[in-house]
Amino acid sequence: MISFEEAYEKVMENTFSFGVEKTLLTHSRGRVLAEDVLADRDSPPFNRSTKDGITINYKAIEDGQKAFKIEGVIAAGTAKTQLKDSANCLEIMTGAVLPDNADTVVMYEDIEINDGVATLKKEVVKGQNIHRQGSDVKQGEVIIKKNTKITAAEIGILASVGKVEVSVKELPKITLISTGNELVAVHEKPLPHQIRGSNTLSLHALLETENIHAEHLHLDDEKESIKNNLRELFGENDVLMLSGGVSRGKFDYIPEVLDELGVEKVFHKVKQRPGKPFWFGLHKASKTIIFSFPGNPVSTFANYHVYFKDWLYKAMEIPAESKSAILMNEVENDSPLTLFVRVKLKTEAEKLHAFLISENGSGDLSSLAHTDGFIRLSPDKKKYEKGTVVPCILSRYN
């Protein structure tokens, strides 16, 4: 049995790229950019007015002028024009191109218009209310860096530079596998000795948040059937994610079957709770990674967030973000195990505060409805005082 730190390091050592593909801009939200995105022209692409009002040549003000005859109106989307007489003005709308021979914009609130003449009511600063060409971004500059996760904000930027298709990281192909004769489908009424299968559905929902659409397979506790089915999945998947069948029970065949199929065991069992029987390995011939989580619901849920999510982000080259929280309850860990303790989280003064929640072990699925994350407690530390800052893994809280 190895420590949590050793297990985490070994998982992170076994990451690889899934490749690159093109996708439509309209389908790219949540994906990870595989290229730097460059500005195809200056932004803004011209000197633009930031207000509705008039545009003038400031020299007229320096010469003592306060009233300006209106030559015409410039709407947004109109091609560049010219102020013909420096003693005059043009009405201009927000977003319109600043005309030649004009260098200042005065908003309507600061002028009075009568009989086609605009008179200034306030002091004017030369160059005011103009968004200068290239002041945001110059043509050829990187505007979104490679490995950025695409959100609604990036969608707008990508559209502005004409990216109809976007180069993104391919997502891993994953099959979720549940094991156990005691499991029945969600729509079935379980007998007294049975339970409805929930772990793979939780994992499916978690993967959906990463835009990964996983396949499902259920295997009964029959060794040859497990072996034959797993053999077929190698090569078709980047990841097999199993739930159950890795403990010491007489029908926990997964470790034995994986060994017989030539899967290299990286480790089995970690000094942690929940999730101690966690099995991790690699089928080198097909380059398939196997995450085999314990069957208890909280163990599966916690191990996904502790190991798989960080593994995925490293493989996708998404920058990792570590979190910490302030303990709002005193807690002890005098065991030799690293503990992942369920907490409710609250932000106060821009800091996360962690409140312990009531739970009944790793089989207590209902407690996850109240869980925002897990705090990590190191082994053999008898007491954590209230106010202690501890590592925190978010499962729901944003």
Rank of each mutant, 00 (worst) to 15 (best):
289 I>Y: 06
277 P>G: 06
298 V>Y: 11
301 F>P: 04
315 A>I: 07
298 V>Q: 08
349 A>I: 05
304 Y>M: 04
339 L>I: 03
328 M>Y: 02
359 E>A: 14
316 M>P: 02
310 D>V: 06
337 L>S: 03
320 A>R: 15
302 A>L: 01
307 Y>K: 02
318 I>P: 09
340 F>G: 06
277 P>L: 04
357 I>A: 04
362 S>D: 14
344 K>R: 15
276 K>V: 01
313 Y>C: 02
325 A>R: 01
329 N>F: 08
340 F>V: 09
332 E>Y: 04
321 E>A: 10
300 T>Y: 03
277 P>V: 08
275 G>R: 05
321 E>G: 01
297 P>Q: 07
287 K>C: 00
277 P>Q: 10
355 F>E: 09
310 D>A: 15
281 G>D: 10
301 F>C: 01
334 D>V: 08
333 N>S: 12
351 K>I: 09
306 V>T: 13
339 L>H: 12
298 V>G: 08
303 N>Q: 06
286 S>E: 05
302 A>R: 00
290 I>R: 03
325 A>L: 04
339 L>C: 05
317 E>S: 15
320 A>Y: 11
350 E>H: 14
281 G>N: 07
323 K>Q: 11
350 E>D: 15
327 L>I: 09
356 L>K: 06
338 T>M: 06
336 P>H: 12
349 A>P: 00
290 I>T: 08
344 K>F: 12
284 K>M: 05
281 G>I: 09
279 W>A: 06
317 E>W: 02
330 E>Y: 09
301 F>S: 11
317 E>D: 14
336 P>V: 13
276 K>F: 06
303 N>W: 06
348 E>I: 14
291 F>K: 06
346 K>Q: 14
352 L>N: 13
300 T>V: 11
319 P>I: 03
356 L>A: 09
353 H>K: 15
299 S>K: 10
339 L>V: 04
353 H>P: 09
321 E>Y: 06
312 L>S: 05
279 W>K: 02
299 S>I: 05
330 E>W: 06
275 G>H: 08
329 N>E: 13
324 S>Q: 15
342 R>H: 06
320 A>M: 15
277 P>C: 08
361 G>L: 10
343 V>F: 05
336 P>M: 12
306 V>E: 03
276 K>M: 12
317 E>G: 02
315 A>W: 05
281 G>E: 09
345 L>M: 12
315 A>K: 05
313 Y>H: 14
312 L>M: 14
313 Y>N: 14
285 A>L: 10
323 K>V: 04
331 V>N: 07
333 N>R: 10
362 S>W: 08
344 K>M: 10
289 I>H: 02
329 N>M: 07
282 L>D: 07
309 K>R: 13
350 E>W: 01
316 M>F: 13
293 F>K: 09
286 S>R: 00
282 L>F: 12
352 L>H: 12
294 P>I: 12
315 A>Q: 03
348 E>Q: 15
318 I>Q: 11
346 K>Y: 00
288 T>Y: 02
280 F>S: 07
286 S>D: 02
294 P>F: 10
298 V>S: 05
318 I>V: 15
301 F>A: 07
345 L>F: 10
328 M>W: 01
361 G>N: 10
306 V>G: 06
296 N>D: 08
276 K>A: 15
297 P>Y: 08
340 F>C: 09
347 T>A: 14
333 N>A: 13
